[in-house]
Every structure is written in C-alpha cells, then in structure tokens.
Design a protein around this nucleic acid. Structure first.
Lengths: 210, 210
DNA sequence: TGAAGGATAACATGTTTATGCGGTTGCATT
DNA sequence: AATGCAACCGCATAAACATGTTATCCTTCA
C-alpha cells in the first residue's frame, strides 16, 4: 500500500487527485493540505511514502516546501506537480532533492505509474521535463567553446592573471621583463576581444579556458 | 512511419531488435550496422528518424558515433542502448547530444514507446537512468561554499565587476558617485580576502557568487 | 536612546594597468 | 633569401585602480 500526502492549493484538483488515488488499488491518500505552513510536522506525523507537491502555491511554494522536508527527511519521495515545464523551477526542484517532476496534465493512469515509480526509487519525469533536463545538462557542460588560439606563453600568462597576479609578479614568476608581460597581455586581449584584466579573467572562467 | 537505423555489434540482439521493430505497426528498420565506421555516410544516405545506438561497441564506440553524427546532423534522434547504467557513459552521452538513454533489458513494448517518444521530441529514459541524471544534476550544482555575507549593494557592485565594468561605469549604472563605488569595492575586498579586481572576479566565479 | 552598521560622498597619494610606439632574436615555412 | 610569427624588451602617457582617512545620513536593534 502506497501512502501519500498531497499539497495543492486548488480545491478541485485536490479533490480530483484524492478521488483518483483512493479509487485505485494499492494507493491511499493519508491527508491533503492547501499550503506548506506545517509541512515538517505533517510529514513527521503521517509518515507517507510519497508526497505530491504542487509548485505554484501561495505563501510557501512547493520548492520551499520541498526544502523544508529535506531538512528533516531524505527518505520520503517527493513528486513535484506543475502546470508549466518552467526551466528555472525544474532546475531548482531537482537540485533541492525532488524525486520526480510531472505536469498536471499527465493522464491519471500515467500519474499512478509515476507515483509507483517514485516509490521504488525511480525518477519519473514527463517527456517535456526530461527533454529540458537533458538540455540543461548538455548546455552546462559544453566542454570549452571557442579556441581563440592563444599561444602557449599567452595561456600561461592568462593563467597567472586568473590567479590574481599583477604584471610585476607574473614577470618574476616567468623570468621575463614586465614589458614582455604587457605585450603578451595586449595580445591576449586582442584574441579574447576584451580590454581589461577582469574581463579577461571572467572570459577565462566562462569559456573554461582555465 | 518511423524509420530507424540500428548500430549494434551483437548479431543476436541486432536481429532481435530488427524483427521486433519491423513486426510492429508504424515502425521500419532501414538498415543495421555492426560498427560506426561509416556512420556519417550511412545517416546521410538513409535519412532515418531515429537511430538506436549501442554504447559498447568495439572500435568506434556509441558515444564517438553519436558525436560524429552530431557533427553533421542535429535533427535525427539518437537513442542510446546500453547494458549498464554506467555513470560516466550517461553523462558523456547526454552532453554529446543523445536524445534518450535506455537499458537493453527494457521490455519490447516499452522500447517501442521510447522510440516513439524520442521521435516526437521527448527524452526517454529508463527509471534508473533518470535517477542517475537527477543525482548528478543535484550533486554538481550545490556547494556554493562560503557566504562572505556581502550586503545587497555589494553584491550588485560585484556583479558589475564580473561583467567587466570600470568604476566609472558602475557609478553611472548605479547612480552613485565613483568614490562610493570605491568604498563598496574596498569593503568587498575585505570580505572576500582579496586585494584586486581580478581576484575578486575569479573568486566570484569559483565560489559561485554570481 | 545609543550603538552598530550600511550607503553615501570627498580628498589625497601612490601604484597598476591599458595603449601607443618602437625594436631584436630565433625558428619554421615558403 | 624572404616572410611570418612567437617571444622577448624598452619607453612614454593617460587612465584606472588600491588604499587611507574622514564624515553625513539612514535604519535596525538591543
């Protein structure tokens, strides 16, 4: 028997979900709540297997609710419910420890499947969410964009810049004159299309040159 | 009609997949290959909707094959097939542009579902894969180390520094005097334990303050 | 109510950076 | 032999930066 709590501010949807779930073999809704004000106590008292958590709630939203839960309980599975597959929310929810993320328009049979999947350690996601997650994933990785073809020496200098060295210090470290450091840096700026040290440093981080 | 190519070195599995798919309404296997040696030409010639790509192949493996495909074609959907839900491969595949990632032990009906899902822009994953992806996602993100408790204003200034603004530009943007900018920056340096703009920028990136 | 601290601002001084120009050397390609 | 290019070096100047000190106006908080 899968025991659930539901957090959802919309009364119709709350009733609908409850009826659907309670009417299905092997599922039971322990309680419903329309906000997350006492989420910690409620979860502690009812000890559910799975929580359905609406994201868009007034007051404490679903993400905050999730975070509260995770402060005290890492075992209960939390399935986020939302109308939109909004990029930022997906990201937030996932990194706050959600076990799954499904759209409200998911058909009932699918939803029950997802709940079961969450309970058994899976990570149910609707297709559109999964697509987004993959996109975020691949975009954040992007193993270095442009090349800028910096020479070896220029790369070294840039490295020192990133580490906060002044021209003078770089000259010392590299056993060259400070004016040579200047020359290198000027060249680096040209290749990176920037015109200050901090821009170069920022670009180095952004484009994973270091 | 969903048209497929299959890359799989194991003859049994190759035959099995072909028979399964060709025996299903709405699916057609255009061709099968046991390695990725000519993958670019083959994809160009057959113009499939979906490619089933085994990961563990001798010679050019599935990930390399995927990368080759993505060099010339971003539209075709590539579904990775593997025996293990190996962490590293999942990550590699996703960031190389795979559309989905399923285990070979996936039951036939599910597999057809997944193929259809991939074709229509979804991102099919078996539950265990999805779980892994979420774990990677949430683990790679957090940290955010120290806080340094910068004030709101100081955070704004730091933001501008990171974007390469000079003191003068920051003063203009924030409608304050350049000397005030100086004051803020001095305070920022103290809190971040640095003593130059580029060090501050570097630290901002490293500690994910921005 | 008085202390603490954030945001604002001015002034002064010395250092660092950005940019321009010029140049030599040595290696590799043509 | 000529060309290009990376690495090296020097000089000059203006702008930007780092640091110090001082001070007012707020709000918050004990």
């Amino acid at each position: 028997m899968t025991k659930l709590l539901i957090y959802e501010d919309n009364p119709q949807l709350r009733e609908g979900l409850t009826m659907l779930i309670n009417g299905s073999e092997g599922f039971e809704v322990l309680a419903c709540f329309k906000n997350c004000n006492n989420v910690i106590e409620e979860v502690g008292a009812w000890k559910p297997d799975v929580i359905l958590m609406d994201i868009d709630m007034p007051g404490i939203n679903g993400i905050e609710g999730l975070k509260k839960i995770r402060q005290v309980n890492d075992d209960v599975k939390v399935l986020m419910l939302t109308v939109f597959d909004d990029n930022k929310n997906v990201f937030q929810a996932i990194s706050s420890g959600a076990n799954g993320y499904v759209l409200k328009k998911t058909p009932p049979t699918k939803l029950l499947e997802y709940i079961k999947e969450a309970q058994t350690g899976g990570a149910p996601m609707t297709a559109s969410i999964a697509t987004q997650v993959l996109k975020m994933f691949s975009s954040m990785n992007n193993e270095k964009g442009e090349d800028y073809n910096l020479s070896d020496r220029e790369k070294q200098v840039l490295q020192f810049l990133v580490e906060g060295y002044s021209y003078k210090m770089i000259a010392n470290e590299m056993f060259i004159a400070i004016d040579t450091v200047r020359s290198h840096i000027k060249k680096i700026y040209e290749k990176l299309h920037v015109n200050s040290k901090s821009e170069a440093v920022a670009k180095a981080f952004k484009d994973k040159l270091v």
